[in-house]
Write a protein that binds this DNA or RNA. Structure first.
Length: 264
DNA sequence: CACAGTGTTATCTG
DNA sequence: TCAGATAACACTGT
C-alpha cells in the first residue's frame, strides 16, 4: 500500500494517537524490521519514557520525533502504522509495539519486512538518512518538476518513480498521474513539450490532493487504479481495453488510446 | 506449483 | 558513465 498518500495517513494516525503521549513500553516481536544496525534493546532504551512530538513525512518516510532521538519508518510494500488498544491481541505481522500512557498502542505492522525502523539519535542523523530524497511530491513546485524531468533522458515513468528526483510517488500514483495527463509511461523525458509538462503538473496536484484526502490511491470507478487488476479491464474514460506491460521494471497499466506510444 | 506484488538496492549488461 | 534489466529481500494471494 504505502505510497505518499498512505504514508500521509500513517502520519495522521501518529499525530492523532501518538502526539503528546509518553511511550511506556516498547516491544519488538520481530527484530527483522530493525535497520541500520539497530537492536531491540537500543530502541527500547531510546523510546521508553519519551514523549511523542509532531510527526513529519517526507516522500514515503515517516519521522517520529521525541525531542531527543527520532525513529524513521519506511513501510516498503506492505507496512502499516495502526493504533489499537494495548490489551488487544497483536495481529500476525505486528513487528514493533509502542505502548502509550493512555492504554493504546501504535503498531508497526508489516507482512514482507522489506523496510522497517531506523533510529536517529540526532537531527543531523535524520537529515543523513533522508539526504538522497528529492523534493516531496505534495509540495512540488513547477520549477522542481521541470528540474526532475530534466537532465539525462529517461523514460517518463522511471523519472517520476525516482525518489531522488521526486519523493513519494509509487507505482499506482505514477500510473494514475500519467493516465490523467494522457501521457504514455515510456515517453522520453527529453521529448516532453511545455504542454505535456503542464499536464503532468496539474495531474500530479489533482491526483495527490484526492489521494491524500482519502489516505490511499482511491479505487474510484472514474480513475485508472480501480481497473488495473480487472481481467479485460477497460479505460474508465474512453472504454478502450487497457494495456498491461512492464515499464521501468514495474507492472504498468495505461490506456493505449488516451496515452499513445511515443514515436520512435 | 508458478508467479506477481502499492519498494528499494546491489549488481550486471549493453 | 549511465539507463535499463535483474535478482534479492520475505511472504501472501491467485
Amino acid at each position: 500500500m504505502p505510497e505518499l498518500a498512505d504514508v500521509e495517513e500513517y502520519r495522521r494516525v501518529l499525530d492523532r494517537c501518538g502526539r503528546g503521549h509518553r511511550v511506556t513500553r516498547v516491544e519488538v516481536t520481530d527484530a527483522g524490521v530493525l535497520r541500520g544496525g539497530l537492536r531491540a534493546r537500543r530502541l527500547r532504551d531510546a523510546l521508553t519514557g519519551a514523549r511523542i512530538g509532531r510527526p513529519e513525512r517526507h516522500g514515503k518516510w515517516l519521522v517520529l520525533h521525541t525531542g531527543g532521538p527520532a525513529v524513521l519508518l519506511h513501510f516498503g510494500m506492505t507496512g502499516q502504522l495502526v493504533s489499537a488498544p494495548a490489551d488487544e491481541r497483536p495481529a500476525a505481522h505486528d513487528r514493533v509495539l509502542f505502548t502509550l500512557d493512555d492504554g493504546r498502542q501504535l503498531r508497526f505492522r508489516d507482512q514482507r519486512k522489506l523496510k522497517g525502523l531506523w533510529l536517529a539519535p540526532t537531527p543531523g542523523e535524520v537529515d543523513r538518512l533522508l539526504a538522497d530524497q528529492g523534493p516531496d511530491a505534495l509540495s512540488l513546485t513547477r520549477e522542481q518538476l521541470d528540474a526532475a524531468l530534466g537532465g539525462r533522458p529517461r523514460q517518463l515513468k522511471a523519472a517520476l518513480l525516482d525518489q531522488s528526483r521526486i519523493a513519494g510517488l509509487g507505482n499506482l500514483l505514477t500510473d494514475e498521474v500519467l493516465w490523467h495527463a494522457r501521457l504514455h509511461p515510456a515517453h522520453r523525458t527529453d521529448r516532453l513539450d511545455r504542454a505535456a509538462t503542464g499536464r503532468i503538473s496539474r495531474s500530479l496536484k489533482q491526483v495527490l490532493r484526492i489521494s491524500v484526502r482519502a489516505g490511499r490511491v482511491p479505487p474510484r470507478g472514474s480513475w485508472l487504479t480501480g481497473h488495473r487488476d480487472e481481467p479485460g479491464g477497460t479505460c474508465p474514460r474512453c472504454g478502450h481495453a487497457l494495456a498491461h506491460g512492464r515499464i521501468a521494471g514495474r507492472g504498468t497499466v495505461w490506456c493505449p488510446r488516451d496515452q499513445p506510444a511515443p514515436a520512435g
